[in-house]
Simulated assay, not measured.
Amino acid sequence: MEYKDYYKTLGVERSATADEIRAAYRKLARKYHPDVSKEHNAEARFKEVGEAYEVLKDAEKREAYDQLGSNWKQGQDFRPPPGWNPGGGGGFEFRTGPGGQGDFSDFFSSIFGNMGGGFGGGGFNQTGFGQGTNTRQQSRGQDQHTKIQIDLEDSMHGAKRSISLRSASGERTLTVNIPKGIKAGQKIRLNGQGQTGLGGAGDLLLEVEFNPHRLYKVDGNDLTMNLPVAPWEAALGATVKVSLPDGTQADVKIPANSRSGRKMRLKEKGLPSKPAGDLYLILEIVLPAADTPRAKELYEQMSKELAFNPRANG
């Protein structure tokens, strides 16, 4: 199997402090979290980062890992030294993996043991490493799933929202950070806010849904809005002001001889995700009312002079 350089995985020196290791882990965990990352290998990297942190965050585990020495290189074939017994044969206790799913690597298992394995037939049990044949594991609580309704503006700018959850133990209020650019269907994970188990609490996963917006419709990263235009703006062409989802305005050029239903794209003016979405404008020609003598006169003049028949090709 390949040797895994946990320091290299987290991008820190072997002399890194606990605070430096923690900061590096948090940065990489945010970058590769499968719920939000766009990296093609996000899930695998997230597991690698979690495994590295599981070892290096604890002084005893880190010391045992460092006993292997600095001569092993990333990718080099590895076998534990004969008689290898980290930490004197006891005291280590792990969750089943960075995500609680038993997904530690073979390299990790060869050093510290895992469920049903380890050294001297001991394996992993509730009291530590290599202490008998009882491999029953303290189980982590189950993850819980629910939905959260957010406004479009929350995704455009990022936001903090409070949610109330009811359970058998009562009601609790949680503060949720809404990441900028999050899409409908994506999930926000709140660590340790799920069901409680002997091995700790599971996570709470909030699936994002958008509240209806008075102007914009959401489709993935993209947004769509109807843009009302006057008949002469559509016929002659014009430049009009358009309100953008981020709260700013833009000058949009309407081409001459435009028809209702024409779709125009404003690139990267949709949700600010990675990549950013687009904003689509659907032209909607709005006729002025013939509710004054002058308006009626103008309509009568057009009917005579333009000789326009909208059903001519019907």
Rank of each mutant, 00 (worst) to 15 (best):
D222L: 06
R161L: 05
M264N: 06
K241V: 12
P228H: 11
V208C: 06
L165C: 08
A18G: 11
G261Y: 14
L165A: 02
G237D: 13
F308R: 06
N85Y: 05
L283Q: 04
K304T: 13
D251F: 03
L271A: 08
G69H: 14
D143F: 03
Y3G: 08
G69E: 09
K269V: 02
L227D: 12
A24L: 08
S155E: 03
D203G: 04
E300W: 15
F124S: 12
A312R: 15
G170M: 07
D154I: 02
G141L: 10
T175L: 01
L283C: 04
I21N: 01
T17A: 04
Q137H: 07
W72A: 03
I148Y: 01
F119L: 11
A64N: 07
Y3C: 04
P293A: 11
L205V: 06
R45I: 05
W72P: 01
I182M: 09
M156E: 05
L244N: 00
A234V: 08
G185R: 14
Q138E: 00
T127N: 03
Y25F: 12
R259I: 12
G200N: 14
R172S: 02
N125E: 03
D143A: 03
K269P: 01
A295M: 05
G102P: 05
A250S: 13
G113A: 06
S109A: 15
G89L: 02
D222P: 07
A184D: 10
N226P: 02
G87P: 01
Y216A: 01
A256F: 09
K27C: 00
F78M: 04
L244A: 03
R30Y: 12
R45V: 08
P231Q: 14
I254T: 09
G113K: 06
I188G: 00
E54G: 06
K187P: 02
D219G: 00
R62D: 04
T292G: 00
A24I: 00
D35G: 14
F108R: 07
G91H: 09
N85S: 07
D77V: 13
R62F: 08
Y3T: 13
D5Y: 10
R26M: 05
G97Y: 10
E2R: 05
R62S: 08
L205S: 07
P86T: 14
S37M: 03
G121H: 02
L306M: 11
R140V: 03
P179K: 13
T133S: 04
K263N: 10
N177F: 01
S260A: 11
R26P: 00
K57T: 15
K4P: 02
G200L: 03
H145V: 11
A276D: 11
F108K: 05
L56C: 04
V240K: 03
E284V: 15
R30E: 14
T17K: 12
L244T: 08
K61A: 11
G75N: 11
R166T: 15
S15I: 14
F78I: 13
A234M: 08
V176N: 04
T146W: 03
P34R: 13
